[in-house]
Design a protein around this nucleic acid. Structure first.
Lengths: 240, 240
DNA sequence: TCCTCTAGTTGAACGCGTTCAAAACGAGCG
DNA sequence: CGCTCGTTTTGAACGCGTTCAACTAGAGGA
């Protein structure tokens, strides 16, 4: 099995390599499965033996992209102790490393919004990768000198930062400004706000807000069926 | 021209009607253009004479959906003066009226994230509708007794609320909880926060934050090429 | 009445992603 | 060497969205 598997792994890697190169060169839509197969020197059916669909090739790209991101983050995470600098460095690195794929990253998020797609970040197939990315943000927090007091918030923050990064990427995909300057400025600004929020939110005046918000998040993220059969009509001509 | 045009408009409407019905019944992906054409009693090519692509049928749906939303909002907007109740009513109405299309709404946002798609909310083809939706939120604000002091913020708020609604819809698409209870709870909670923010943000302690944020928004939304060649590295080991 | 010209309509044909029955390969065994 | 059985590979075929050259309908002018 070991020898056989090795051969298979080789073919698989070769097809993926060829596909990503073609994606970078011509974009996703203009790269056909036939072209990938031909360039890789295999039959179309063979590509489907290793990748369930054209979209699954992107899923593979997604994982490699995260690895590159981790690599690029390493120096900042090792040296820097300031939370703002850490978070900023990590997000900047994300955009920097993604830049060569700006053209074809579109598709990446196209299917990402489709609940039925395997690329959808909430799908089971993406769960493993999502976990890894969340871990990165956990490390951003853990390695900083800023301590998050509230344990519930501490637990929730990595997930929230993951969501934040998704938002930044979504913006970046639509960003046509020179060298995506707008995206970088958005990062500059929002990182400041977020770090300020993290340090302020646990202070007494904001406690009730934080508490109810954490409750909501807990409810929203519990995949298990319902949370509570809450009223949605309680609001109407309230504080008259 | 008038008579001829009438005939055309009739066919167009009939095709759209047929398509939307099939979408509701079988979902988007499982409804083929051939099936639409057959059900409408025309040739496939004829459908393409009126709608440039299958996706453009969704764009048409999008517009109709907004009309229904406006209709559903009317009573609340006419009677209610409390901002929180108005905003809550409008968002609840959006989900309520969209509910029959929950299954197929997925596709709606699938292509929405693709910059090249006509469905992308930032595309020129969507500009008219985006404008109309933004106007709705302008009315939500204008008709409430809450006055937004800062004129820049007042101008920006409808756009921000539009973005907010997009976020809610995105969540709703992925929401599989019974009767989408999670989405309604999310609305309940976030509306409260947003209204509180609107009233607090213009107070002295938050002024600098508001000002820089408004500057950023102005920059981000100016479609004209660049805004400023800002540094993105100013952050690093800052407040040591 | 017939001609003309535009709006409307047709359906075969194209290239795409994807499927699948069948073939080829290759390690282990007698 | 020949046989077996699971892994790997093949490519014709399917159904889809989309295109386009050709056709029809019908209003208006001569």
């Amino acid at each position: 099995m070991s020898e056989t598997t090795r051969k298979g792994e080789q073919t698989r890697a070769h097809i993926l390599e060829t596909a990503l190169q073609l994606f970078r060169e011509r974009g996703y839509e203009d790269t056909t499965m036939r072209a990938i197969a031909e360039a890789a020197g295999v039959a179309v059916g063979n590509a489907y033996y290793y990748f369930r669909s054209k979209e699954h090739l992107i899923q593979a790209f997604y994982e490699r992209s995260h690895d590159e991101h981790l690599e690029a983050c390493r120096p900042i995470l090792a040296q820097e102790r300031d939370l703002r600098a850490r978070l900023h460095g990590v997000l900047k690195a994300k955009i920097d490393t993604s830049m060569p794929y700006h053209r074809f990253a579109a598709v990446l998020f196209k299917s990402a919004a489709d609940p039925k797609s395997p690329l959808n970040p909430f799908s089971d197939e993406s769960a493993a990768l999502r976990e890894r990315v969340t871990e990165l943000f956990a490390e951003v927090l853990a390695g900083s000198r800023t301590r998050v007091g509230n344990p519930q918030l501490r637990e929730e923050l990595p997930h929230l930062l993951w969501t934040y990064q998704m938002g930044i990427i979504l913006f970046w995909i639509h960003d046509e400004s020179p060298e995506c300057g707008r995206t970088y400025r958005l990062i500059d600004h929002t990182v400041k706000i977020i770090v300020r929020l993290i340090t302020l939110i646990d202070l007494p005046p904001f406690r009730p807000l934080l508490w109810t918000t954490l409750e909501l998040l807990k409810d929203l993220r519990s995949k298990g069926r319902d949370g509570q059969s809450s009223p949605t009509n309680e609001i109407s001509g309230s504080n008259e």
